[in-house]
Design a protein around this nucleic acid. Structure first.
Lengths: 185, 185
DNA sequence: CGGTAGTCGTTTACTGGTAAAACACCTGTT
DNA sequence: AACAGGTGTTTTACCAGTAAACGACTACCG
């Protein structure tokens, strides 16, 4: 949306208005112009994109304080939560980004002393990356703050609704991850 | 993640597995390492980011066939659904992007003959942008296909659940749009 | 052995976005 | 009238990401 990223097929609408969120306003506009179309999908996909963009834009205060981008934290987090070394390729798969992006990030994180690399003894093409003590401490220090921040961001939604939302998103994501390839046409 | 956006604070996990979506697997890893932390927020924010990234990556087949990026379609769509001319500034607000990005897109879309500009007679700083007939026809031709595609993407989720999901996302988005500024700290 | 195919990681060339400066213009004040 | 300050748009400089080419290496197979 960016995440860039940006908007969505439903676009956006700067006016808040009493009638709900901005996506609702956009959908109303579309329905006025094309009353025959089923705008249902917009209300889900548009909102997901818009939420992701807003969350991205809010750029997680705890991360910023540590001078980390979300992508960098993702990489460190993958190392921390798996608990063992990972190769650059594994890190790329784990963080859903290209190998080239991982190479760049590793370079910076190594310079900052947060990760270390070591060459594989058997296969000299591959490298193994691990957290330094400083990297590990940084992740462990940030994570609680980050979760508290995310919790605050979500606090406008009642806890039971949060549970429902998480479950429904889980269903959707499971479907997307399983079956999206088939749709690429 | 730009959208683009890439991953999320919860990162990702390449393994699907029987136990649910990839975010669920990541959350399980975190809980094994830090059993004391409340990982609830990850299950929402992580999934939203991941869904947005996947939807982005799937890069909407109907749009691609028309040679449009999602951002370009958003811009055209804003003109179509409002039904009147918009200034570049209004377009930026409407599509949630920077003015500079709008300038670039307008240049390309003008070259392709999809939009036209005219200067304001009173205030010579401002421009008014409108769809050409070709632009309008293009949007009207793509939109049904795009909605059908999105509908297919969501088809793995039962219609009643889709309704719930849309409603819950509406609540969250309304909260985010209203109150996110306060959190920027 | 020797060559071919495949894999891992990096480099390169490019894209599409942003922030901030620059530019052109309006508006209110003196 | 002249100027200060504000606004709308474009330009500039830059950044982070990708895809594709590349180099180094392994592994297979005759």
């Amino acid at each position: 949306m960016t995440a860039s990223d940006g908007g969505s097929a439903t676009g956006g609408d700067a006016r808040g208005g009493a009638g709900g969120d901005t996506v609702a306003a956009v959908v109303r506009q579309w329905r006025a112009v094309h009353p025959d179309l089923d705008t249902g999908p917009m209300e889900i996909i548009g909102r997901i994109n818009r939420c992701a963009a807003l969350l991205q834009q809010a750029e997680d205060a705890p991360l910023r304080r540590a001078g980390l981008s979300r992508a960098e934290f993702d990489l460190l987090g993958a190392l921390r939560r798996t608990g063992h070394e990972l190769t650059p390729g594994e890190l790329a798969r784990e963080t859903f980004s290209s190998g080239a992006a991982v190479t760049k990030r590793l370079k910076q994180l190594t310079e900052r002393g947060l990760v270390e690399r070591r060459g594989d003894t058997r296969d000299r093409r591959v490298a193994h990356v691990r957290l330094t003590d400083a990297g590990r401490d940084l992740v462990d220090g940030i994570l609680p703050d980050q979760l508290a921040y995310e919790s605050a961001v979500l606090s406008g939604v009642e806890p039971p609704a949060q549970g429902e939302l998480a479950a429904l998103l889980g269903v959707l994501l499971g479907q997307l991850e399983g079956r999206l390839d088939a749709l690429r046409i």
